[in-house]
Amino acid sequence: MQALRQTLRDIAKRDMAQDAAHDLAHLDRVWLTARDIAETMGGATRPLLAACYLHDLVNLPKDAPDRARASTLSAQAATPHLRALGFSDDEIAETTHAIAAHSFSAGIEPVSDTARILRDADRLDALGAIGIARTFAVSGALSRPFYDPTDPFAANRPLDDTAYALDHWPLKLLRLPDTMLTARGKQIAQDRAATMRDFLTTLAAEIGFTPEHPCWTS
């Protein structure tokens, strides 16, 4: 598996458009988390390894109009690489389904353990300490403010994550634990969401506001 991992990593390094949230380090983290989850479900497989390293082969910006198609395009782009690596037709089908179904915006339901593990592992990378860093890296790339300086926790305005980075947390990220498809994924997600809420408590103290609404605190 180690030789295959290095080959897949080389493919991603060469072919994937990388940004601060989707780079080789992201792929390494997803694989590490996927292995953790897979240990509770029978162990990691070649399709899971390949899906972890090729799932962002087509990486479109968050604000791209065809963003929802990125995972399907990644699955298509992965297919010739999998054939060249000697994957069977069944392994290719398992890998490409997992890639296509991992995306939040694609709306494709995972129907295999490989797909469920990849989706959980990828979403878990949006939580915890790395999730905090990614939030603000993406907001910087999109030239969005960290928060609304007059109402950072949206006490008197609608949440809008196209305007403020922090609004993305209650709208999506802090809801991710409820979307996990594996027991181990849910456990990790709850721990990482707690890390983010601790950060919110510290942030609130530093900027003189209180995140009173339940969407921030529970």
Rank of each mutant, 00 (worst) to 15 (best):
A50F: 06
R116Q: 15
D10E: 15
G131C: 05
D178Q: 12
D63H: 09
R5V: 10
D191Q: 15
P61H: 01
R29K: 11
K13Q: 14
A121M: 03
L57K: 00
E212W: 10
D113C: 06
A163L: 15
F136D: 10
D63M: 01
L48G: 09
Q187R: 10
A204N: 08
R29Y: 04
R192Q: 15
A205Y: 05
D161W: 14
D90G: 06
L85C: 05
C52F: 08
D160Q: 04
W169P: 13
A121G: 07
A17K: 04
L48S: 07
A183W: 06
F209Q: 04
H97S: 08
D56G: 12
L176G: 04
A98S: 09
R144A: 12
G42H: 10
T179V: 06
L171A: 04
P158V: 00
A154W: 08
R123I: 00
A68Q: 07
L127H: 04
D125H: 03
I11E: 09
L181M: 12
R144H: 11
F199R: 02
R184S: 05
K13M: 10
K172D: 13
A194K: 15
S218K: 13
R46D: 15
D113E: 12
L166Y: 03
I130F: 03
D63Q: 11
P177T: 06
F153L: 12
L176R: 02
T195S: 10
A34D: 07
Y164V: 07
P65I: 00
M180S: 03
M180C: 10
L166T: 03
L57M: 04
D160S: 09
A21Y: 02
D10W: 05
W216A: 05
L176D: 11
R184Y: 01
L118F: 09
A50I: 01
A34N: 08
D36W: 06
L142F: 11
N156Q: 14
T162A: 13
A100P: 13
V30T: 14
T217Y: 00
R192I: 06
D125N: 13
M196H: 01
S74P: 12
A121C: 04
D19L: 11
A25T: 06
A154P: 13
T40D: 15
L181S: 08
A50C: 03
H22V: 05
R197A: 06
D15V: 03
R67P: 10
T150H: 14
Y164A: 06
E94W: 01
A137D: 14
A25G: 02
M16V: 08
R197V: 13
S112D: 11
D167H: 03
A68Y: 09
M41Q: 13
L27T: 02
L200W: 00
D113P: 11
L181K: 08
H102A: 09
A194C: 12
P152W: 08
D23S: 15
Y53N: 03
A106C: 08
R29Q: 14
L49G: 05
L32S: 13
P211I: 08
Q187C: 01
A17D: 14
